[in-house]
């Protein structure tokens, strides 16, 4: 009967030295995905809270941005800690994406000839999926959307690729208002941040399951935790493009760096920022 055995679908690779061998297994990859997910989620939350300085006005948010470069004060070279955090973030991104991609490939191979399409196995019948939430089924879509958005966001506000002369390095407030007062850019930010919230809604729940951090007491809190984190991040991040469009955050007369005020026809609530 041995010859009749169903052959293994995935080849066992030669084991690497110990800590690396963990990443060769699917569960090890899932742990890496969950842990990098926690790191990235932490970044997203801190980034959102930091951006709330926009509501305090240009000088405060620019000072906040400046102080990120000065983290560690005189103890370390300037921007060293910021760069350590940036490199850490990049590594987390790389591992989060690589583990997700290779696990998706594993699932795809395991569903070969079984109707695997757009990230999930499907049957011929129209009724499908009972427990799987919209968020969990779209992780393989919201993830790439957020990834592309991060690149767009960097090109937009960190490198200033298309803001032209209007982009002023270090003047966060001006750059944000410049960028987000364009309607297509605002729409990109809104769509991407909704995708991010949907991604977090499943991820922030799923990580407890993956890390095996679950017991009858904490189990009930997992869903609420995910809902709260996802909605806070969503509300905070969506507020910026909306408030720029509404003129609450605007480049008005008190901003000395203001270059182009003609674009901001909606900026009639000057008094709010004064």
């Amino acid at each position: 009967m041995t010859a009749d055995r169903v052959p293994p679908l995935h080849k066992v690779k030669k084991a690497l030295p110990w800590p690396l061998s963990l990443y060769q297994t699917a569960i090890g990859k899932k742990y890496v995905m969950a842990i990098t997910g926690i790191g990235l989620l932490g970044f997203v939350i801190v980034h959102m809270i930091g951006n709330l300085h926009l509501y305090e006005g240009p000088s405060q948010v620019n000072e906040y941005a400046e102080s990120l470069r000065d983290l560690g004060g005189h103890l370390v070279p300037r921007t060293l800690i910021l760069w350590i955090m940036r490199i850490g973030l990049m590594l987390m991104f790389v591992f989060h994406i690589h583990s997700a991609y290779s696990l998706k490939e594993m699932s795809r191979k395991s569903s070969e000839n079984a109707g695997f399409m757009s990230g999930a196995k499907r049957y011929a019948s129209k009724q499908d999926f009972v427990a799987a939430s919209y968020a969990s089924r779209t992780m393989r879509w919201t993830g790439p959307i957020v990834g592309l958005y991060v690149l767009f966001h960097l090109a937009d506000l960190t490198w200033g690729w298309w803001l032209g002369d209007g982009y002023i390095r270090g003047d966060v407030y001006n750059n944000v208002v410049m960028s987000l007062s364009s309607l297509p850019v605002m729409l990109i930010y809104i769509v991407a941040n909704i995708a991010l919230a949907v991604h977090i809604y499943h991820g922030a729940w799923s990580m407890f399951q993956t890390l095996g951090v679950t017991n009858p007491h904490t189990k009930k809190l997992r869903r609420s935790f995910a809902v709260i984190v996802a909605s806070l991040v969503c509300a905070g991040n969506l507020s910026f493009p909306i408030m720029v469009q509404a003129g609450v955050i605007s480049n008005d007369s008190n901003n000395t760096n203001s270059v182009n005020t003609s674009e901001h026809s909606t900026a009639d609530i000057d008094a709010d920022n004064a």
Binding site: P8, H10, A26, K30, M106, A132
Partner: peptide
């Protein structure tokens, strides 16, 4: 892992299970 795909915590399995086995065992 040689035969099957990778779990993404959808929870479909628990709903399909005729014995309603809990996802807690996956966490374990």
């Amino acid at each position: 892992e040689q035969y099957f795909g990778s779990c993404t915590n959808h929870g479909e399995c628990h709903t399909a299970c005729p014995k309603e086995i809990s996802l807690d065992f996956i966490a374990l």
